[in-house]
Design a binder for these strands. Structure first.
Length: 703
RNA sequence: GGCGAGGUAGCUCAGUUGGUUAGAGCACAGGAUUCAUAACCCUGAGGUCGGGAGUUCAAAUCUCCUCCUCGCUACCA
């Protein structure tokens, strides 16, 4: 299909922290390369992005820092926007979801679906903080983790042991906003019936995109579709977000995942009155650049929303990248294990293109990749400096030395095979780069360009004009050879500028300056031409395109990381979903609120007993569960405990433990669990049984 | 446990519908050279293609089993 317009979106970064190299490599850089490539072909393209500024983690961060959520998003929106701008990520607009136009657009979208009767209204019971008069999202609820005993676990996850939780599972749930205990109250929400779009999605993706989408994206979607889809709540009880535009919805906002993708639409509206040309025409090619953590939202939920609404184009492709690791470990915002873009810009001024280069050459296109500073240095020094930069530099130096600083004439009567060969290489490279970019293979495309520069070096080496200049007796004849050689090298340099432009725009610009040509020369259709630089045109003195990275520089960066590593606690609660945008970051809440005082009667309700483990085995089809047989003297009972990640069954047999003996029984994976084993947890996340110091009789009461 | 994506030279990755001695770049070693940011150019060493079994005249490539990494998902009193 021939597309008339291109609408390119990059995932909306969550305005809860700066952007790091993982974000760049996963999403923004490939998107920018793609867009710059399209623009150089004079395509009609809009590149849309903006901050995602709603959601619970932002409100929690605000609370923690004692400022308003608006302050938080204002701060990070500025930092993020500046980082992108300085890195040359060329959005047509970088908007934000806290804008008025977004609120209106998202509400109108919601109402459209509402009026069509698409939503299902459902009531459920949720925790409510009476002192603050509000319902609490899972993240606002703190309590004791039933798995590891951490008393600051969140309602959706315990950060100490990594267990994912629901608020109902927390022991002694309390509000993170006040010290009040919680009551349960009914609340109503609007659910989007994803299940009703299952068949349509299957047809659209499973059949329609099979050979077309990247295998990781297609596979992930198919997995979701095969597992079956379910209605999803599209509203939340909160005051931070887009208010639900219904009279009976006070204190309710749109779920961030409902409003965030609509942000692409509202940002386009903000950008241009012609927004509907891009969003509502079949001949627009819509491409979402995202990280792999967003696949389900961009491939399943958002398309279903667009379909339900009607009148919108659907994404033609969603080229999601995998994750970028840093020095062998997952990038983590909360643990500060990251290279922040704003830090990089400070430490490596005017070297945006070196970072762009390395992140593209090593982009996680097909699998998770590792960024190391050593690799950064190697790639910059041996590919950018030694191959590309060096070719351009030696061409310019030789031209100044041997051709009086002007583009030499091409003597057509002595053109040879290697001249023609290089000309063919330029055209071939152009085609390969085009094909690779169109297939979202940016790594390969970039390699082809470096390889062309490599061919240039070889050509120069074979011709050795510096030797020709050393034989005065053949001066006239040799000068013609020199002219041809440098003419070709200069035309190649101009072509390299065009080809590298989408990837390294700062460098292309510098090259234009040196060649004294206007930037219009960089238009893609000019690639392949051998008359880009006019004969006898005087060129500027060479200027080094790239700076070598010295050992000391990367040592400093590595030391910096080592420092953070020291401060990282052993506890390996890595936050997943952290490499790209809408990452709801983990935040450590420094809340050590003591629990509410209880009476002796409260305590006396507990029946704590010493028991001896006499048997233990892994529960089938469960990673975290151990089925444990306990000797209580008067009886043998079975307890299922979520500690399988911490202990091997054979290692715990014979140990004495303390259990809550009168906890209501509960079936887990079909096994009735009667009681709960008490565990202490170390700072490093290790679990330790709470046992009597000396051997006690099995069944002894603990009081 | 289920599902998805990967596991190919020290490192980063190619390997199309199974077909001769498995490729490239970097790093490493040797040589040549000096126009160039000690860069470039040439040559070389290197891998039982995660492991095992099978189909085949022929398997990195197809089938089955198994191990490891990453992600999604279930279990967490």
């Amino acid at each position: 299909m021939d597309f008339k317009r291109y609408l390119i979106t990059a995932a909306l970064p969550y305005a809860n922290g700066p952007v790091h190299i993982g974000h760049l490599a996963g999403c923004y850089l490939p998107a920018d390369i793609y867009v710059r490539f399209l623009r150089s072909q004079k395509k009609d393209v809009q590149f849309i992005c903006g901050s995602d500024e709603h959601g619970v983690p932002i409100t929690i961060r605000a609370m923690k820092e004692g400022i308003t959520p608006q302050d938080v998003v204002d701060k990070y929106n500025t930092i993020i926007k500046n980082s992108f701008e300085e890195m040359g990520i060329s959005f047509n607009i970088y908007s934000r979801t806290s804008s008025k136009i977004h609120t209106e657009t998202a509400q109108a979208f919601f109402l459209n679906l509402y009026n069509k009767g698409i939503f299902e209204e459902r009531e459920s019971e949720q925790y409510y903080d009476e002192s603050k008069e509000m319902f609490l999202a899972d993240r606002y609820i703190l309590g004791t983790c039933p798995v590891c005993g951490n008393n600051n676990a969140y309602g959706d996850q315990c950060e100490k042991c990594g267990s994912s939780l629901s608020p109902e599972q927390l022991i002694d749930p309390r509000s993170a906003l006040s010290s009040a205990s919680l009551v349960k109250k009914k609340t109503k929400h609007w659910y989007f019936p994803l299940d009703k779009y299952e068949n349509w999605l299957k047809e659209w993706i499973v059949e329609g995109k099979k050979d077309h989408w990247k295998s990781n994206v297609y596979g992930q979607c198919k997995s979701w579709l095969d597992n079956g889809l379910y209605p999803r709540a599209m509203t939340r009880d909160s005051t931070w977000g887009v208010p639900v535009p219904l009279p009976d919805a006070v204190g309710k906002v749109l779920y961030v995942w409902f409003d965030a993708p609509i942000g692409y639409i509202s940002a386009t509206k903000e950008l241009t009155n012609l927004w509907s040309d891009y969003w509502c025409n079949e001949d627009t090619k819509l491409v979402h650049f995202i990280g792999k953590d967003n696949i389900v939202f961009h491939c399943i939920i958002f398309p279903a929303m667009l379909k339900a609404h009607g009148g919108f184009v659907l994404p033609e492709s969603v080229p999601a990248n995998e994750f970028l690791n840093l020095e062998g470990e997952k990038i983590s915002t909360s643990r500060n294990w990251a290279v922040w873009v704003n830090d990089f810009l400070k430490d490596f001024p005017d070297q945006q293109d070196t970072l762009r280069y390395v992140l593209c050459a090593n982009a996680p296109e097909t699998k998770d990749n590792d960024f190391t500073w050593k690799d950064f240095q190697d790639r910059v020094n041996s590919e950018l400096v030694a191959i590309f930069g060096n070719f351009v530099n030696r061409t310019f130096v030789l031209m100044h030395k041997l051709c009086k600083g002007r583009v030499p004439k091409m003597h057509n009567d002595i053109v040879d095979v290697s001249d023609n060969g290089l000309a063919d290489d330029i055209v071939a490279t152009k085609l390969k780069v085009e094909q690779n970019i169109e297939n979202y293979k940016f790594r390969d495309a970039l390699y082809e360009i470096i390889d062309l520069a490599r061919k240039g070096n070889k050509y120069l080496q074979d011709k050795a004009p510096w030797l020709l200049a050393k034989t005065p007796e053949l001066q006239l004849e040799n000068q013609q050879k020199i002219d041809n050689c440098l003419h070709v090298c200069l035309q190649l340099t101009a072509n390299l500028a065009i080809l590298i432009n989408p990837f390294l725009p700062f460098t292309a610009k510098k090259m234009c300056f040196m060649m004294k040509v206007v930037e219009r020369m960089l238009e893609w259709e000019n690639a392949g031409r051998l008359d880009l630089l006019k004969v006898s045109y005087p060129l500027r003195a060479p200027e080094l395109l790239f700076k070598k990275i010295e050992d000391i520089e990367i040592e400093q960066q590595i030391n910096k990381l080592k420092e953070t590593q020291k401060t990282i606690k052993m506890s390996e609660t890595t936050d997943k979903m952290d490499n790209t945008e809408t990452v709801r970051q983990e935040i450590k809440l420094e809340v050590h609120a003591p629990k509410q005082e209880i009476t002796y009667e409260d305590f006396a309700k507990l029946d704590l007993r010493v028991a001896t483990i006499i048997g233990a085995e892994k529960v089938k089809n469960a990673d975290k569960l151990l089925k444990i047989e306990l000797d209580l003297k008067t009886e043998i009972r079975t307890v299922v405990s979520g500690i399988a990640l911490h202990f091997k069954p054979e290692d715990i047999i014979g140990k004495q433990v303390t259990i809550v003996a009168n906890l209501a029984p509960r079936k887990l994976k079909g096994i009735e669990s009667k009681g709960m084993i008490l565990m202490a947890e170390n700072e490093d996340g290790r679990l330790i049984f709470v046992s009597p110091l000396e051997k006690a009789d099995a069944g002894s009461e603990v009081k």
